[in-house]
Amino acid sequence: MQLNKTIIGMVHVAALPGTPKNSVAINVIINDAVEDARKLAKGGVAAIMIENMHDRPYLNRTVGPEIVASMTVVAQKIKQEVGLPLGIQILAGANKQALAVAMAAGLDFIRAEGFVFGHLADEGMMNSDAGELLRYRKKIGAGNIKIWTDIKKKHSSHAVSADVSVAEMARAAEFFLSDGVIVTGNATGMQASLDDVVEVQESTKLPLIIGSGLDSKNIEDYWPYADAFIVGSSFKCNGHWQNTVDLARVKTFMQKVDLLRTKS
């Protein structure tokens, strides 16, 4: 999957079977996810990523077979119905499971947290897994699936690596064979630091993806520096990640993107 100012819309899959917030059957979860994906496609996004964000509180690095199975069927159905490039993240830090789902469902990329430089996350200490993850990708023959990796990930403390700059982290991710780096704000829906974005862009040849806080008002600020933009909250009703996708909000955002493309 080539990135060229690519807009990636988020589908936040409803709470899956076995998780505390689950309240509906898997067929309802699938239908709702497909409906959100259809709205994103109709609004003009170039790719979609699915995530189990409603499965809070998240497990650290390991999720059960019920999550892997559920995310696989959701991904397969979206791919079948929408046909856009599709990726996945499984919280929290369940990168091997995400890669397994991507392999089974024929997806294009995964978003991996904790790839380089361990950090203290909401779920506890998360050690880096680049070596293990890339060996697993090799083992299952999934070399065609891109692994985009967060650096200084949101919802985390980075005190233990405070003397390591975001640029150094980006260079480490490149050295450890990441396929792209993701820069975020401190939490879901919060803007990334433009200074961090510029610093990363100048420090690595990897594709740079903005992973949080984007809307139709600030996308122009990041446009010159990033190769792709992951948009979640801004595409949802009332701008909140827990809500369903609002087609009108997607179209408004994409109109701004179309204007930026004509200026490029």
Rank of each mutant, 00 (worst) to 15 (best):
D179T: 11
Y225M: 06
M10W: 14
V63W: 12
M125Q: 09
W241N: 01
L134T: 14
K153Y: 14
H240F: 14
V245I: 13
N4K: 13
E202R: 15
S203Q: 11
L208Y: 10
S234N: 09
N52F: 04
V198Y: 00
S128D: 15
Y136T: 04
I145Q: 04
L134C: 08
R261S: 01
A33Y: 10
K256M: 06
R137M: 07
G180N: 10
A94Y: 13
I209C: 06
F175C: 00
G9E: 08
V250R: 10
N22F: 09
G64M: 04
V245N: 04
L3T: 06
A192S: 09
I230H: 05
A92N: 09
Q201L: 00
F109G: 01
L59Y: 11
Q80L: 12
A167N: 05
P17E: 12
I48P: 13
V250N: 01
G189H: 09
Y222K: 00
T62I: 14
L208H: 10
L107M: 13
I7S: 01
A121D: 13
F117N: 10
V63Y: 11
S156F: 13
K138A: 14
S234L: 05
D196Q: 12
N52P: 14
W223E: 07
V200H: 06
I230Y: 01
G87C: 08
K39E: 11
